[in-house]
Design a binder for these strands. Structure first.
Lengths: 221, 221, 221, 221
DNA sequence: CATGAATGAGGCTTCATTCAT
DNA sequence: TATGAATGAAGCCTCATTCAT
């Protein structure tokens, strides 16, 4: 938890701090991420970081909960009952996830790292919850749809959930690899992330959904 | 590139060196991996490392090419022409990949890290080639199958390739997460990695192939 | 010297400040004692300390003179002329010293530290005066008693003074080590430091006086 | 425990290291003592210290056991059975203690600090054993003499032991305060610590023993 | 070839002190 | 008068790398 000093901080400074810290922790291991680099980039004294946070781990934990909250704000805005069927709903979830990724590339990158790339022992106790939660939630969704007869039941549920989770995660890297979306540059060049690419993104999402749908729908004998 | 000193080394020592070094670099960032820990574990002098390799990066590069070669040896052993159709072929490729993962958990873990988790600036120039190669190869396969009419053509090729690549990669983590295969423990307890689990593994591979197949086959209108 | 700001401070705040600061400096080296901990404990702003005192050294000096004054107030209350002979007088001095130690454990601890345990270069110039004063005063007493024929003259005066001073100082640690008096706990549990232990303390003082007396009285041939 | 690196070190370097480290830890709290100052004084790299010792605490522990061993070597050289009576024996013990103090002023100062002045929490678990051992040993001696009728029995044994221990400890400070023995200067100016002062020291020891003897002998009614 | 002591840059963290509000 | 954010020096410790033996 940040100290009061950070909470009371001028919002602009606070935001700038988070931005730079997030960049550092998004690009590096917990171990490798460097407070020194952060303060150098910010042009502040090293001591200041410790006015704001207990220690490096405290900072990391705050970044984590910050990003999770941002992501949550995206997720909760999509509600199952607003969609006629599961797949249109799920398409919206994907698209929303993409919005999150594109509008908060650092957050996205950081969370991905937390979920999959992090191996520093210091943060071990705080990992994984995200991945587990994700597959748990998907399992519930899938089970519900199986009850409706819209998802196949001839394969183990965990495999289906794993499958969907993996594909969902890969969307951002898909964008990056295939469509060459350069999150950073977009962000740096002034924010209107959507525009040119939007169409392509929507199309890509639709395409992936097509794949998922085909994979998961009840199979004819 | 290793120095001659390493090449000329007693093969047993050489193997032990690689084993320990691999373990270290499989478990940690390039930055975080520690030469100190390696020599401590090996019980050799620190200077020896620098008799064998130029520096940390040189060691890393050797590990990378070593693991890639090991992996390649698995892959090339499966030949398209030995299988009646693409999917049985691909199932064999998967299974082979799993064999590689299970018999060389450190290699597998290291390559996974190199491909997805590594972000230390020192190795930045050497990343990614693997991922690119993988999708390129898959693209070629898929295109061939599309020509045969066994894979759908209504979605962009890169998306299909990405899809397959991602799913292929996730097999190991699937094993780990769902079937609770504990590579490390298996390894520690004396190597017969296959046995009890084998059935389950084969089943999981078959299940994933089912998913892929359903997703990728030409869709009826 | 405290600044006016401290002098003008609400007496209650002032007392609380001294109490906490004393606790810190009683438990630690000058160097190790931490202004940060003091303000944290007090719940005041760090800047306040520098409104009250020039710097850490200034605070330390004030604590020192404060404790010395408290101690002096105990000492001067025992007057030679109120006692029939030197040893009953000295017993009263001892007992008074013990009262001081027990009623002002922090002061006592701090002064002991200042006199014997402190070695931070910053305070070096201000040390020792207390010890010197003590032995000087004792030397005067002893000389007077020697004139009366009640203290031996066959040993050098400085040795006798040193002997008495050392023994006097050790009373508190004797209490602590042998009688297990836990100053801090007594203090924490509500102050009635005297009571059960009082008898034992008086006895211990009497015993030590017996030793001193036997040691110092003129020796028969 | 020092690492092998230190044990294998050139004896001259090793000695010089111990000398400087001991000086630092003799003059300061564990907390306050500075590795930085040590390496600056030695003109070696900071990292070297950590080639020799695990950490600051490890270094401190080695210094402690080193000094204790040095001191032990002095103590065991005086054997009770070589002396006709307790007091001549004890005089020899004192004198020997003084020899130790004078020939190893740093050791002596360090041990004194460890026994009485140290309050850093890091070393708390390792303190006190010395003081306790000392009084325990004295208690045994005293009890034996009481059985012989040479030491008074009208006062509690712990008080007698405490008394002797305290006086024994004070010998060095007595030398310093009263005879102005400047350990450091003697040491710096070329080692023959004994010579001029020797007579005075012997006399002082004899005087103190006189005091102890008078204090402790069975008292006439 | 192997050794292992030496190096010094760099990392995290603490702390007294300053100063604008 | 009080506040508390900002500072930067200094402390401990780790690590890759060098080099004389």
């Amino acid at each position: 938890m940040p100290k009061e000093t950070f909470i009371n901080l001028d919002p602009q400074k606070q935001a700038r701090f988070l931005e730079v810290a997030l960049e550092e922790f998004a690009n590096s291991d917990f171990q490798t991420a460097s407070i020194t680099r952060i303060v150098k980039e910010l042009g502040i004294a090293k001591g200041s970081v410790y006015q704001y946070f207990e220690d490096k781990l405290d900072l990391w934990l705050h970044l984590k909960s910050h990003c999770e909250q941002v992501k949550r704000s995206y997720i909760v805005s999509v509600r199952r009952e607003d969609y006629p069927d599961f797949w249109t709903y799920y398409e919206a979830v994907y698209a929303n996830g993409l919005h999150f990724d594109l509008e908060n590339p650092r957050c996205s990158q950081f969370l991905y790292r937390v979920g999959f790339k992090e191996s520093s022992p210091q943060v071990q106790p705080y990992l994984n919850s995200w991945k587990d939660q994700g597959t748990a939630m998907l399992s519930r969704w899938i089970a519900a749809e199986q009850a409706n007869g819209t998802i196949r039941t001839d394969l183990p549920l965990p495999i289906l959930a794993h499958f969907m989770f993996t594909m969902g995660l890969s969307v951002a890297s898909l964008m990056h690899d295939i469509y060459g979306v350069d999150f950073d540059r977009n962000l740096a060049e002034g924010k209107p992330l959507f525009g040119l690419e939007n169409e392509a993104l929507q199309a890509a999402v639709r395409d992936l959904i097509q794949l998922l749908k085909a994979a998961l729908k009840p199979q004819a004998l």
